[in-house]
Amino acid sequence: MSSQEENIKIRTSGVTVHYGAAQALHGIDLDIRANEVTALIGPSGCGKSTFLRCINRMNDVIEDCHFGGKIEIDGEDIYSGEIDVVELRARVGMVFQKPNPFPKSIYDNVAYGPRIHGLASSKDELDHMVETSLRRAGLWQEVHDRLHTSGSGLSGGQQQRLCIARTIAVDPNVVLMDEPCSALDPIATAIIEELIEELRSQYTIVIVTHSMQQAARVSQRTAYFHLGHLVEHGDTDRIFTNPANKQTEAYISGKIG
């Protein structure tokens, strides 16, 4: 099938990453479909976070980190010389494990991206962007009357939604999430998961998670990584009920592989 028919947003081929002499990824070929949530799972050190960080070139800043292979987003090679990395990271946003709001007001946290990218031409337009982003992140109702108080005064779950609002304020089309709920309680987690489901109609989402249940709940596709290799990739429904690979089965069932 052509990428047109399958609606492939991100195509990675032969992706390798070395940290100095140590090879972290061994030739990853993974197609990620638009408007779907793809979950990357696997034991610690399997390369899933390294792989995630290749998609917006976050590994570039790590000394001695060497990328090989090819990643295309909408058919464009993101490692080619013509790519503006800052612009790429606006298109491919990222949400981290620990909520990391800037030590600024709620408003300024969300307005930060549009400001540095010059996306708003007036105060009204910026206000509108902040409101829309907070609404999409499901936070507006809770914070609209205290936009100018500090973002760090929010609860953990609210802070994480603020970080999601900040990410989507610059209108990305891919959102990467690296264990976005690992610091949250079950209710805050459920709210983020509900949000992920709502966001996928507009964004392509790739999420790294250590929770098998979370991967099963939020994703349409799941990729299992082990020792820097992509072991298995397929429909989440199948991966968690009838995985093809014995290593995948052992991992998701909590067995010694």
């Binding site: 009920t241 089965e249 069932s253």
Partner: peptide, 9 residues
């Protein structure tokens, strides 16, 4: 236990 795969089956 939230069983998966063969355990669930």
């Amino acid at each position: 236990r939230s069983p998966m795969a063969k355990d669930l089956r």
